[in-house]
Amino acid sequence: MTDGSRRVWRAAPGTLAAVVVFTVLAAGAVAGLAYLVYRRQGTPWIPGALALLAVLALLYAWRFGLHPRLVADDDGVHVRNPFSSRSFPWSEITLVAPGENGLVIGTDDEVAEAWCVQKSNAAIAQGRFTRADAVAHDLIDALELRDPPLEDRETGLRIRRARPDEARLLTRIERAASEERLEHLFLPEEFPYPVREVTTLWRQLLHDPAARVFVLVHADDDEALGLVAFAGAEVLHLAVVPHRTRLGYGSALLEFAVRQIHDGGEPEGGLWVLEGDAGTRAFYRRHGWTDTGQRRPSRYPPHPEELRMVKQVRSRPRRAA
């Protein structure tokens, strides 16, 4: 989307056609019935009530079928539903994703669903790419025109926003980055990689307005090389595909997350790391993260211990002398 442009999405053409045809037929049938009653009884009251029902049917079709729309312009994204309207400035949008009742547009403070852009529950469960995903991609592309991804022109690397349909991609990246490295903690014969659970977790994060999920890619072909996810002051996930380790990609993703946490006004960042993952713990220490002594069981069986690490990301104000 370029400056001065405006895009409008309404209900899918098939849905609009079905609503219009059904309503016209229903209104015609009611009007015809009104005429027959009038011819037979000669009284205007019942035919008048039926005619009113026909008019209400047409109004219903307009309000629920033709009126709802999603508009994107230079000011932001505007959701028009049958009985409500919301507008979201581009600078405040943190979430664009298909939901159960429409395309979800969200900020840190509020969320609205655009009824006109639907994705069925079956399509969501199966991970199928639909019109709703295509609209979400268009809106995220427009968002990135105003807030471009971090890009290094020399290396051709870019840190871009994850798309709402990329849960499986994120699962593949995380699995590739961790499965072999952590096999001493999660024996493959006893505890195979929990693909379904991890994919579900990513879908939840991609629909959470408080979460930020980014993917490291090659700008030329969009090849995914790594990922980072954080919410508030918490780094939730960091991963780099095995054949791209020791090239500084993990450091770049971590530095990006820390900077975003800093820009969000948080004084300290935090994360959890597996106690038995010595290499990752050393990586974080090299970047200024320190152990706090806090422990907790990890999410997946056999639930090895995790350790809490923190890093000061914003200078604390000095006390007056």
Rank of each mutant, 00 (worst) to 15 (best):
T171Q: 10
G269V: 05
L66H: 08
F186R: 06
L150C: 09
S91K: 14
I46K: 05
R39Q: 15
V273M: 02
Y38P: 09
R299A: 12
A26E: 11
Q118V: 03
H78Q: 04
A49E: 11
E189Q: 14
L95N: 10
V215D: 11
Y193C: 13
D263G: 00
P297N: 08
W62F: 15
E144R: 10
G269P: 00
D108N: 09
L70E: 13
P98Y: 08
S85D: 07
L143V: 01
G76Y: 06
T2V: 06
Y35G: 09
L238E: 14
I140H: 00
R295W: 08
D74T: 01
H137A: 14
A177V: 02
V55M: 03
R196F: 09
V235F: 02
T290G: 11
V111I: 08
D73C: 06
H137I: 13
E166C: 05
V241M: 10
R160H: 09
P13L: 02
T130D: 06
R259A: 09
D208F: 06
L238Y: 03
R316A: 13
G102E: 00
E190K: 10
D141M: 04
Y193M: 11
A224I: 11
L33R: 06
L185W: 06
A162Q: 13
W90S: 06
A229V: 00
T199F: 01
A72Y: 06
L201E: 15
N121C: 07
R286Y: 01
E100L: 00
P82V: 02
G4K: 04
A211D: 03
A282E: 03
I159C: 00
W115C: 08
D208L: 09
S251N: 02
A162L: 13
V55Y: 04
G293L: 08
A224C: 02
D108R: 15
A278W: 05
R281C: 07
R163A: 03
A282M: 03
L254P: 05
K311S: 11
T292C: 00
V79C: 06
R203M: 02
W202C: 04
G102S: 07
N81K: 02
T290Y: 09
D277H: 15
A72H: 13
D147A: 11
E92T: 14
A278M: 12
L95K: 08
A54C: 05
L139N: 05
L59Y: 00
R6C: 12
V235K: 02
W272P: 00
I159R: 08
T15C: 04
K311L: 07
L58P: 03
R316V: 07
L206V: 07
P89I: 08
V240Y: 01
P302L: 02
I105E: 03
L206M: 03
R314K: 13
R318M: 02
W289P: 04
A112H: 12
A229I: 10
L50Y: 00
Q204K: 15
R39H: 13
W9D: 11
F88Y: 14
A142K: 07
A320M: 10
A125T: 10
L56Q: 01
E174G: 15
P304I: 11
R203P: 00
L66W: 12
Y300L: 09
I159G: 07
V235P: 01
P89S: 04
H184F: 11
Y249I: 07
